[in-house]
């Protein structure tokens, strides 16, 4: 059951410049596990050393914040989209805009 993980611009340099990746996963945690296995450099940006999602990393399934669902155990189904968004509202333009 493929789910699509959207990779935000600041993380793309650690994910082979990809903007998304698809994995077969039953939960959000599984999908993020596959993502950080395929792109090992992403792990330290998303997870703490003891494997917890870093405090400023917000994850959404479709438009729902997993904090208000079942966190990393939130089930996923075919065609779901997972978004990874740092909790900064203002944001700054990235190199991608320049190119």
């Amino acid at each position: 059951m493929p789910v699509k993980v959207m990779i935000p611009s600041p993380l793309r340099p650690y994910a082979g410049k990809r903007d998304s990746a698809e994995f077969n996963a039953r939960t959000v945690g599984e999908a993020l596990g596959h993502l950080t296995t395929e792109f090992g450099d992403l792990r330290k940006h998303l997870f703490t050393e003891d494997g917890k999602l870093r405090s400023f990393v917000n994850v959404y399934v479709n438009d729902e914040d997993i904090r208000y669902l079942a966190k990393e155990n939130t089930p996923t189904k075919d065609g779901d989209t997972i978004s990874i968004i740092p909790s900064i509202a203002g944001g700054v333009p990235t190199m991608e805009l320049a190119s």
């Binding site: 935000p8 600041p10 993380l11 940006h45 400023f56 909790s87 900064i88 509202a89 203002g90």
Partner: peptide, 12 residues
């Protein structure tokens, strides 16, 4: 200290 961070308004 990284491109992916939680400091609003800060730029790497």
């Amino acid at each position: 200290d990284a491109s992916f961070h939680g400091l609003e308004g800060w730029k790497h």
